[in-house]
Amino acid sequence: MDTIVDILNILLPLLYGGLLYLYGQSFFKSVSRTNKIKTVMLAATVLIHLMYLLFRTVLFNPPPITTPFEIMTVIAFCIALAYLYIEVISKVHGTGMFVLIPAFLFQVISSLFIRDLGQVPEVLQSNLLGFHVTSALLGYTAIAVGAMYGILYLMLYHDIKSNHFSVIYKRLPNLEILESMSFRSTLFGFIFLSIAIVVGLIWLPIAFGQIFYSDPKLIGTMFIWMLYAVGLVSKKLAGWHGRKIVVLYVSGFIVALFSITFVNFFFSSFHQFY
């Protein structure tokens, strides 16, 4: 199984690179003939990536969430999975390149530096934690994809509004579709973030005994959650949409990015493991 994991570790960046090439071709040259091949290849890559993660889990037990490079391959997987879902639902094939760039980069870095596991802190050896981290990552990547579609929306919006009809105008789908992709992806992310928060709150007293409700990490996370909750509810109830709500999705993601990097490294008392 060792060899299989090693082979997959080399294969995955190549697969993502191939996908990036195909999607790039269709964005810049609008080759629609490859649409079906792209989706099938994407689904196959996601499946192979899932196998890789499962093999790693079986081989090294706990799940691959204990080092930054393990997290990175999981993030790449989550991005690809979230995008596959959006593509199948929306049947829009032209935007994959933008989403797959981060997936490809994460996977390349992970494949280069990932090592077989040695010592794992005891606090991290928990299946409940695996569940927490997986849904948190899935949630964050989905809101990242949502924000990415939000940015594409804003770019196209600007193009149309200012009579500047660039390649963005030519290749992107329409504003309504971009908005709905941004919304769907953000909703998907919101659901998984909610699960991650609930599981985290259950795991926290088990792991540490003592609960730190005033921890900046917890406050930050709850703030992000509230921001998205308000956004999603106001879309439903107050009929908010268009540029305003897209700006909200994008800013929600920026705050989230701030929370998982800056707050985590400098302020958090318990959410630091690496």
Binding site: S30, L156, I160, Y169, L172, P173, N174, L175, E176, I177
Partner: peptide, 24 residues
């Protein structure tokens, strides 16, 4: 090739633009 792509009359350009704003 893309020789036939993109609107080249005012009326088609308007419809093309509508299709970039609305989905349906």
């Amino acid at each position: 090739t893309e020789i036939g792509e993109g609107a080249v009359s005012i009326s088609y350009a308007a419809v093309e633009l509508a299709n970039k704003i609305f989905a349906d």
